[in-house]
Simulated scan of single mutants.
Amino acid sequence: MFEGVIPAMVTPFKEDFSVDYEGIARNLDYLEKHVNALVPAGTTGEAATLSYEEHIEVVRYVAETSKLPVIGGAGSNSTREAIWLAKEVEKAGADAAMLVTPYYNKPNQNGLYEHYKTVASEVSIPIIVYNVPSRTGINTTPELVRKLAEIENVVGIKEASGNLKQISEIIRTVPEDFVLLSGDDFLTLPILCLGGRGVISVAANVAPHLMKEMYTAFAEGNLSRATELHHRLSPLFEVLFIDTNPIPVKKAMNLMGLAAGKPRLPLIELPEEKTEKLRAVLRELNLI
Results as ranks from 00 to 15, higher is better:
249 V>G: 12
205 N>W: 09
244 T>F: 14
217 A>S: 14
169 E>M: 08
169 E>S: 13
165 K>D: 13
233 L>R: 01
163 N>Y: 12
211 M>T: 01
158 K>Y: 02
229 L>I: 15
191 I>E: 06
221 G>Y: 12
174 V>E: 03
250 K>D: 06
260 A>I: 00
184 D>G: 02
237 F>R: 00
224 S>L: 12
241 F>C: 06
236 L>R: 05
175 P>K: 00
161 S>R: 06
220 E>L: 11
202 V>R: 04
175 P>R: 01
226 A>P: 00
232 R>I: 14
211 M>C: 09
229 L>W: 07
239 V>I: 15
208 P>N: 06
214 M>S: 08
223 L>Y: 15
237 F>N: 00
250 K>T: 01
212 K>N: 10
174 V>P: 01
244 T>Y: 13
230 H>Q: 15
199 V>W: 02
188 T>E: 03
184 D>A: 05
171 I>S: 06
199 V>G: 03
213 E>D: 10
240 L>Q: 07
239 V>L: 05
240 L>I: 10
173 T>C: 04
176 E>Y: 14
171 I>Y: 06
239 V>G: 02
212 K>Q: 12
249 V>H: 11
251 K>F: 13
222 N>W: 13
256 M>T: 00
232 R>A: 12
168 S>N: 11
233 L>K: 02
156 G>R: 10
243 D>M: 11
198 G>W: 04
248 P>C: 07
203 A>M: 04
185 D>Y: 00
159 E>D: 15
163 N>V: 04
261 G>R: 00
205 N>S: 11
174 V>H: 03
205 N>D: 11
210 L>K: 14
195 G>N: 03
156 G>T: 15
217 A>T: 07
259 A>D: 02
241 F>R: 04
214 M>I: 09
238 E>I: 14
172 R>P: 05
253 M>P: 02
165 K>Q: 11
193 C>P: 02
158 K>V: 07
182 S>P: 01
218 F>S: 03
248 P>Q: 04
166 Q>E: 13
223 L>K: 08
196 G>R: 01
185 D>T: 00
182 S>L: 02
213 E>G: 02
258 L>C: 04
214 M>C: 08
197 R>A: 11
214 M>A: 09
222 N>D: 15
180 L>T: 13
242 I>A: 13
173 T>Y: 15
217 A>N: 05
189 L>Q: 02
201 S>N: 05
241 F>A: 06
195 G>A: 05
212 K>I: 09
202 V>M: 04
198 G>P: 01
166 Q>R: 07
165 K>V: 15
264 R>E: 12
154 V>K: 09
163 N>G: 06
163 N>C: 09
183 G>C: 07
189 L>A: 03
220 E>H: 11
220 E>V: 09
246 P>R: 14
162 G>P: 10
188 T>K: 01
240 L>H: 04
241 F>Y: 14
161 S>V: 09
206 V>I: 12
253 M>V: 05
163 N>H: 10
232 R>N: 08
172 R>G: 08
247 I>P: 03
264 R>D: 11
219 A>D: 12
153 N>M: 10
246 P>V: 15
171 I>W: 05
243 D>R: 09
203 A>V: 03
238 E>Y: 13
246 P>L: 15
191 I>D: 01
262 K>A: 15
156 G>D: 14
156 G>S: 12
264 R>T: 14
215 Y>Q: 07
